[in-house]
Write a protein that binds this DNA or RNA. Structure first.
Lengths: 267, 267
DNA sequence: ACGCACACTTGAACGCGTTCAGTTCATGAC
DNA sequence: GTCATGAACTGAACGCGTTCAAGTGTGCGT
């Protein structure tokens, strides 16, 4: 946990969506999470220091109980300075979220390398998320509340940019592509599935957030049970009987789900 | 909109879940949304006045921009008094939510009375919700954020009591029971489906909250498309080929979904 | 009539997230 | 060197949700 946000950085974070893109017709002069580009090393260090301190305090006391004043004091800066780097408290979560997504993807890749069984790979990917997120379960609830705000840039859906989602979807593409199932499916479905599997993860996350059992054992059981079923449904989709219903489902996903999470429908 | 919360009351709201039930093992001494039972008429009037004022201001300015001070001033009471009736700002939403659920159920029943086609009845129920909720779309986002907090009693899941959910589930039971489909399904499925259909509504609500199109046209299109598909899936479940997968799905729902939303699994 | 209990009401005060007018500091131009 | 520019930083102040010690009223027992 100490290494969280240790590599401060722009990693794969923001590109150049400031100059054009979504900002045009949106709400006027909406403040972004932080400054566009750091000018100095020192700046970058301060930013990292604040983020690190915040993460530590969040874990120690929870999100709501950690005050901006406490973060600033503990980091040895002023409140105003913290706001210079993170334009609101919730943007501190953004850094945390990006980092965790990255860690999860790395861990899942490592763990599922040994098998080509789709169901197993999917389960590994999901369980890996639960393990990665475990230390933060306590304050995840409070942070989830923020993420559920459609106006917040923290929402897992929409709000252009947010490369964390792309990272996660990419992981699920690999879950599928690395399995023996992928070659058996038609190309269009292979194209669609990663996003659907990511949605599966979102459902698991939702379940996890509300899970009050020891070590979130209930969610883990849920994953163990739901994963083979998902695999079975996908597998069955190859058969003729299911053709029409699969077609409908694909249409629904293409027209209504993907656009919502910021993809243009496959033409 | 003027008539919202006009009939102040306990309508079908709380019964007698104060004396026993869920409070036992829960968090210690958690404050309930308001006092248990009103002692006087005047009390009831004041409460209604505050709720009415709050709802009006929420619609005029949005949830966050409406301050407790403004509500109190506008209603001609003190801030403290507002807190005497609603122990937090979010509990004002509770009143709003209860009321809307009730209105929705009444409207949906009226509208679907003329048909016995399941798909049509389901669509009517969903569209009815969209129509009922339409005036509040603007501030629903902010209120949804609150509802997503697992610790909040506003969460649509869990948190025992909350008769609003029971009302909604009951509506979907009628959607099914009043259709020609119900007699064709096995009893167990008929038992399960209302809750699943309610989940369907929750998905629609989620979609709706994020919907920025004019008159939430996109969500309406989503309902038009997803409803027949849901009907088809349920209809197909009767056939032999699907027997094993339906069994699995039922198991998953019984063991993992229903308990989460406060039902004991059907034995 | 008295007083007592308790529902009801008040508004100042607390701690918080956030803002902003200002100060410090580093860097490049001359 | 010195000075201008703007990034980096400061902390008092604002508005908010919420709390609480203290009031006011009302009905009931005696």
């Amino acid at each position: 946990m100490d290494d969280l946000a240790a590599t401060n950085g722009t990693s794969a974070t923001n590109g150049a969506d400031d100059t054009n893109g979504g900002t045009g017709a949106g709400s006027p002069a909406e403040a972004r999470g932080s400054r566009a580009q750091p000018k100095t090393d020192k700046s970058e260090q301060t930013r990292a220091l604040i983020l690190e301190t915040a993460m530590r305090l969040f874990q120690e006391r929870g999100y709501e109980k950690t005050t901006m004043r406490a973060i600033a004091t503990e980091a040895g800066v002023s409140v105003g300075n913290a706001y210079y780097y993170f334009s609101a408290k919730e943007f501190l979560i953004q850094g945390f979220y990006d980092r965790m997504t990255y860690d999860h993807a790395a861990d899942a890749r490592r763990r599922m390398a040994h098998t080509r069984d789709f169901s197993e790979r999917l389960e590994i990917a999901l369980v890996s998320w639960l393990d990665t997120a475990a230390p933060y379960h306590e304050f995840a609830a409070q942070f989830f509340r923020t993420a559920a705000d459609p106006n917040s840039s923290l929402s897992p859906f929409s709000n252009e940019s947010h490369p964390a989602r792309a990272t996660a979807v990419e992981l699920f593409r690999e879950v599928l592509q690395g399995s023996e199932l992928a070659p058996k499916l038609d190309a269009e479905l292979v194209e669609l599935l990663p996003d659907v599997l990511w949605l599966h993860l979102m459902v698991v996350v939702l379940y996890w957030v509300f899970d009050r059992t020891e070590d979130t054992e209930r969610t883990r059981e849920f994953v163990r049970r739901s994963t083979p079923m998902a695999a079975r449904v996908i597998n069955l989709s190859r058969y003729r009987v299911f053709r029409p219903i699969v077609r409908d489902a694909k249409g629904l996903i293409q027209d209504f789900i993907l656009p919502t999470i910021g993809k243009t429908a496959v033409k």
